[in-house]
Amino acid sequence: MASQYTTDGALASTTALAGADHVASYGRKPVPQPRGLISRRRILLGFCSLAILAIAVNIVFIVDAAMTSESARQAILNDARLITREATASALGQWPSLQTQGRFMNRLLILLGLSLACFGSFIYVFLRRFIAPLDEMTGSAIEVAGGNFNVSFPSGKHDEIGSLGEALYAVASNYQEVLLVTGTSAGRCRSTLDRMAEILAAEQKDSSPPAAYLKKYMIVLEQEIDMLRHMMNDFEFYQVHFDGRKAVRHAAATREAKE
C-alpha cells in the first residue's frame, strides 16, 4: 500500500524544483540537421566521381582501339587499291592483328557494360537499402525529438538498419509511455485537488468535518506521487540520479566539475 504522507517530503520536492528553475530549461530545443548527411553525400559524390572517371577511361580506350582498327582497315584498303603482290601480302599480314584488335575492343565493350551494370546496381542498392531507410529514420527521430510520436521507423530487416530502426522505435515508445503515464497521473492529481478544494469550500458553508474525505483524497495523491517517484527510479541519467525526491549529481560528476 501507499506510504505515509509527509509534509516535509512535499516541501523538499518543491524546494528542489524551485532550485532547479534557474539552471534547467524545460522548453523544447530545436533539433539541428545532422552533419552525417553532409559527409555521407560527400562520400557518395567521391565514389560517383571515381566510378565516372573509370568509365570515361574505359570509353577512351574503346574509342582509341576503334580508331586504330579503322586506320588499319583504311591502310589495307589503300594498299589493296595498288593491287600489287607486296600490298596484298602486307594486307594479309595485317589481318590477324586486326582480328585481335577487334576481339580486344569487344572485350572492352563487355567490360564497360559490366562496369555500368555494377555501378548502377551499387547506386540502386545503396540508395534503396541504406540511404532511404536512414533518411526516413533521421526524419522520424527529428520528429520524435520535436515531440511528435506519431511517426514510424523502418524495421523488420535483420541487419544493422533494422536493429537501429527497432532501437529508435523502442526509444520513442518508451518516451511516449512515460509521458502518457506522467500526464495521466498529473490529471488525476489535479482532479483530486479540485475535489479537495470543493470539500474545503463546502466546509466553510456548512461546517461539516471534511477530514475523512480529505484523507481519502490525500491517499490518492500519495499513490500517484509514489508511482511517479518509482517510475523516475527506473531511469538512469547522465551525471545525476533521482534519489526519490530530487535530482542529485553523481559524486564523480561533482568531482569532475570541481577539477
Partner: peptide, 13 residues
C-alpha cells in the same frame, strides 16, 4: 504484453 520495454520492465518488477 507491451510494446514499451520500459513499461514491461516496470510491470514485471
Amino acid at each position: 504484453v507491451d510494446d514499451s520495454g520500459f513499461m514491461r520492465k516496470r510491470i514485471v518488477a
